[in-house]
Amino acid sequence: MEVRTIKVFTTVDNINLHTQVVDMSMTYGQQFGPTYLDGADVTKIKPHNSHEGKTFYVLPNDDTLRVEAFEYYHTTDPSFLGRYMSALNHTKKWKYPQVNGLTSIKWADNNCYLATALLTLQQIELKFNPPALQDAYYRARAGEAANFCALILAYCNKTVGELGDVRETMSYLFQHANLDSCKRVLNVVCKTCGQQQTTLKGVEAVMYMGTLSYEQFKKGVQIPCTCGKQATKYLVQQESPFVMMSAPPAQYELKHGTFTCASEYTGNYQCGHYKHITSKETLYCIDGALLTKSSEYKGPITDVFYKENSYTTTIK
């Protein structure tokens, strides 16, 4: 009895394709271990004539594949690729409408935090270190965002349907971005203890939790000093293409032309909904596939993004 075979390709990165001759009487799992086709788990399936010449994702289970996976995804987590594939199996079914010149995501599976993050990423200057993220990001900007969303979920250790947080998501993504040249110098002034300067680099240099107003941050924000008295913390120097200011959701007025974009969060910790506000020729609110415009805006804002380049204080 002759062994019926077909020729397929296996890959971990969709760049390096490895030619395989597979036995049609055995499952993919018996031949390769966990195997995925377009995100779908085909591990328990036997090869079919229609699979001839198709590319299958496999887990990096030998040295060659491990090197290829690390170079593309910059992670050695053995569960990463499987999590990416199972997320992709959902995100490829989502709709990605162009809204006001940006790629958004039609609401499904509690994905409003991903839509808000995706919209924000198209408006701030950011370059990702893992080629996987950078490639998928370019495709997302062009309207094909399924891979990018699935990668975000995998890097953030999230599953489809789980509630997510924009600030946490951005923080994970910033860790995989090139923020080497970003720098922030802060000064804390206390009447009792004097003053202390701190220099922050990388992710810490672009994120701040405690106030939404970048102007206020430049002037000074009140913080408790270690001595128990009130101290003032203010920005001395900022070198970065953008800054992200966050605070627990509270009524906040966004003035046209003073910011790049913002995240609105309605609801409580267990259950809520994100919308995205962007400042173009007027203010726009993007909620999944829905767009509304207004000249002014007041609502429960939790993150505001500002364009920056270089700032030095005039406070002496």
Score class of each variant (00 low, 15 high):
Val99Asn: 06
Gly82Ser: 14
Val22Asn: 04
Ser246Gln: 00
Gly299Asn: 05
Tyr84Arg: 03
Arg83Gly: 06
Val42Leu: 12
Val236Asn: 01
Val206Ile: 08
Asp165Ser: 15
Trp107Asp: 05
Gln230Pro: 12
His48Gly: 14
Leu200Asp: 11
Pro248Arg: 13
Gly53Asp: 09
Gln238Phe: 01
Ser50Phe: 14
Leu37Phe: 11
Leu121Gly: 03
Val206Thr: 04
Ala115Lys: 01
Lys183Glu: 07
Lys46Val: 09
Thr19Val: 13
Ser104Lys: 03
Asp38Ala: 11
His51Gln: 11
Lys219Leu: 12
Val166Met: 08
Gly101Phe: 02
Val12Leu: 07
Thr292Asp: 10
Thr198Asp: 09
Lys44Ala: 14
Ala87Lys: 05
Tyr138Thr: 14
Ser79Val: 08
Pro130Asp: 04
Pro130Leu: 03
Thr258Ser: 12
Val21Ser: 15
Ser171Asn: 15
Arg167Lys: 08
Ile152Val: 09
Asn61Gly: 15
Tyr57Gly: 06
Tyr284Trp: 14
Lys106Ser: 09
Lys191Thr: 14
Thr192Ser: 12
Lys233Thr: 11
Lys275Arg: 13
His51Glu: 10
Thr312Val: 15
Phe259Thr: 03
Thr313Pro: 09
Ile301Asp: 01
Lys191Asp: 15
Thr10Tyr: 14
Leu291Pro: 05
Ala154Lys: 01
Asn157Lys: 15
Asn49Gly: 10
Lys275Cys: 10
Met170Gly: 01
Gln251Ala: 12
Met170Cys: 11
Tyr84Glu: 00
Gly220Lys: 03
Asn100His: 13
Asp41Met: 10
Pro300Asp: 09
Lys7Phe: 12
Phe128Cys: 05
Ser246Gly: 03
Gln20Thr: 14
Thr11Phe: 06
Met26Ala: 14
Tyr73Leu: 02
Gln20Ser: 13
His48Val: 12
His74Pro: 06
Thr159Cys: 13
Cys271Ser: 10
Tyr252Asn: 03
Asp77Met: 06
Thr10Ala: 09
Thr5Phe: 11
Lys298Tyr: 15
Ala136Lys: 04
Asn157Ala: 06
Phe174Asp: 01
Ser246Asp: 00
Phe242Glu: 00
His176Met: 11
Gln30Arg: 15
Ala154Arg: 02
Gly143Lys: 01
Gln270Gly: 12
Gly272Pro: 00
Phe56Met: 12
His273Gln: 00
Pro249Val: 13
Thr35Leu: 09
Gly82Tyr: 07
Val12Ala: 07
Thr260Asp: 07
Cys112Leu: 01
Val99Ile: 11
Ala205Trp: 02
Gln123Ile: 06
Thr313Trp: 10
Met245Asn: 00
His90Ala: 14
Leu173Trp: 05
